[in-house]
Amino acid sequence: MGVIDDYLAALAASLGGHRDREDLLAETEDHLRTAAERFIADGMAPDAAEEHAVRRLGDPAVLGRSLADGGSGVAVPTARTRRAGAIAALGAPLWLAYPLFGLLADRADQTQDWEGTPRTLFIIGSSLLLVAGLITLIGAVGLAQRHGGLGRLGPIAVAPCGLALVVMFGAAWFETLWLLLLAATVAVLAPTLWRRRLAPRAPLAALLAAFPIAGVSIAALHIIDFGPVDSYGDRNQAFALGSGIGLAVLAAGIAVIGRWMWSEQAVEVEDSGHVRVA
């Protein structure tokens, strides 16, 4: 790849999924190649001409931010945001562990003493839930960083996700609360990313749909009297299966977004502010 190709790759990374990305890249490429042609016509060597053209246009991350009018930080994928995406993608299926083990625990509880196998199954599900919460928090932070922190919105979006993790740790069975907190993170983050076209839209739609789907599924399963009623009057299996359906959609959305973050080319931001494609 030549110097101009490197520059365009770094600019593309900085623009993310901006709606005018292709036009902005085409205009920048035309500028750089026209400039290089002029410098060559003036007697400069081709490589030096490309370098001079790139230097005159300035840092691609700064240009990308000016063109995209994005967040306050440098909006580029880095090795860290790529790793966050990979962790989120690989860990996404763990969201299914809690409802799955919850179902198994409740079924076992029908025939066995709670202190035996049912409790063990529940503890395994709860432990995996904590891991799922942690990897999602890492993914959410990485996604916000990928887009320059998203200004004030970044912390506002990530905070409920962090709080959900605390609730899971203290009371994994309090599904309604941590599900609502997770929904808050999605409700803040996904529409912004959707509107600014900063991430693939299909998985964002999955994230937004996950919690309504969970709510409708839980309600429908209660209406058809799915599963037994426990001594507290709760239909645990209806809740586990209903939330499981919604969490499966959530996991699919997280996995696709994580994979997209991982697939991006990393750009290194040096202390001087200079940016280069890794």
Binding site: D23, E27, T28, H31, A35, R56, L57, G58, D59, V62, L63, S66, L67
Partner: peptide, 22 residues
């Protein structure tokens, strides 16, 4: 810095002071 010109051109186009064609 040449990079400052394009955002300005885009801003002027958005404000209706310029038009553009490909």
């Amino acid at each position: 810095p040449e990079g400052t010109v394009y955002p300005a051109l885009h801003r002027l186009e958005k404000a209706g002071l310029l038009g553009s064609e490909w």
